[in-house]
């Protein structure tokens, strides 16, 4: 133990206390008994995937060049030339897809178990912010490929801001760094994607977990007091298993469906069918379905309802204690998103 003592001398902390805190916070974190079931224990998946996104994202920046001339070529270089480039890019791409799915499932589970019920409403709101951050991540990241589809998805995607009242044009010009999509847009999106969003995301995750830990994991309604078990080793192993499973899946997907590169972006030629990535299908469908301003308003309204749902749910609870409003909301949430996604997927 010479090394430990040597270190403690130079890094004088109260070791005993450190061990205690460590035990209290991590090793012995009380996990409610229902978390033994896999169904309830998947809240960590987005975190795991995010960790891999950070890792592969950093790796990608080693080769990626955020300039209109080189962006596509460097992505092609990564995918085709660099050893295991297709794996790293594949994990990053599939990670982004899986993360959206994982978040969606996590939210649905939370809605149905009413895990946001008082006093945990704020954590739900943080969760919604995390969702928005993730989608921003996905949108900006997709644009960086700079192929024909991603270029036009970016153009069209940013165009929707125009319809936002009052601030729309300002936001649009700010995002694009000009009136049209131009070289600035790419560097802006790049900076947002790798510089701005990661700390925001990390901070929000930290908050999310902090609030979770302060309250403790919510127990299932009607099954309170069934007891707790420590985080380590059982739940820790679960996380490890989930991690291994996810890496395997993402690697396998990268081999079976390797990331494509498509046609290089040609700003003077719009492809026939422009579509965003699938997770924007619901939004895209609504905007195509309704007049642009109405679409934007209803999206904002939907977002507000989603954000403040715990409070709304509580109001319902007081008025009609018998009705399980969260089931209605959850079913609507899943149903609307699925229908819109499938609908958009089927039409051109």
């Amino acid at each position: 133990m010479r090394v430990k003592e040597w270190l403690l001398e130079r890094f004088p902390i109260d070791y005993q206390k450190f061990v205690e805190i460590n035990e209290k916070i991590f090793i012995k974190e009380p996990i409610p008994y229902h978390m033994k079931k896999w169904f309830y224990a998947m809240g960590a998946t987005p975190l795991i995937i995010f960790a891999f996104q950070v890792l592969t994202g950093i790796l990608l920046t080693f080769y990626y060049i955020p300039s209109p001339e080189m962006a596509y070529e460097s992505v092609r270089h990564i995918t085709e030339d660099v050893r295991f480039g297709f794996l790293i890019r594949g994990i990053h791409r599939w990670g982004s897809n899986l993360m959206v799915i994982a978040l969606f499932l996590h939210m649905v589970r939370v809605i149905f178990t009413r895990a946001y019920r008082p006093p945990r409403e704020l954590n739900w709101i943080i969760g919604v912010l995390l969702l928005l951050t993730t989608l921003t991540f996905a949108f900006t990241g997709y644009s960086l490929i700079y192929n024909q589809l991603s270029y036009w998805a970016t153009t069209v995607g940013t165009n929707f801001f125009k319809a936002v009242p009052l601030v729309g044009n300002t936001v649009l010009n700010f995002l694009r760094g000009g009136e049209n999509v131009n070289p600035n847009t790419l560097t802006r999106f790049f900076t947002i994607h790798i510089g701005l969003l990661p700390p925001v995301m990390t901070f929000l995750i930290f908050l999310h977990i902090l609030v979770l830990r302060l309250h403790g994991v919510a127990e299932i309604e009607g099954h309170e007091g069934e007891g707790h078990y420590p985080f380590y080793p059982s739940h820790f192993y679960k996380v490890i298993i989930a991690t291994l499973f996810l890496v395997t899946v993402m690697s396998a997907l990268s081999v079976v469906f390797p990331p494509g590169i498509g046609e290089p972006a040609t700003p003077d030629q719009t492809p026939i069918h422009i579509k965003p990535e699938w997770y924007f299908y619901p939004v895209y469908r609504i905007l195509k379905l309704l007049p642009l301003s109405v679409g934007i308003y209803s999206l904002v309204a939907g977002l507000i309802i989603l954000t403040f749902w715990p409070f709304i749910d509580e109001l319902f609870k007081q008025k009609m204690p018998k009705v399980k409003m969260n089931y209605v909301f959850g079913t609507l949430f899943v149903g609307v998103i699925l229908i819109l996604t499938v609908w958009e997927a089927m039409v051109f």
Partner: peptide
């Protein structure tokens, strides 16, 4: 799962 991952990565290496 670790070995499954290894197997997958071996396939990846094969493709590479």
């Amino acid at each position: 799962f670790s070995f499954l991952l290894v197997a997958t990565l071996v396939i990846v290496a094969g493709v590479e």
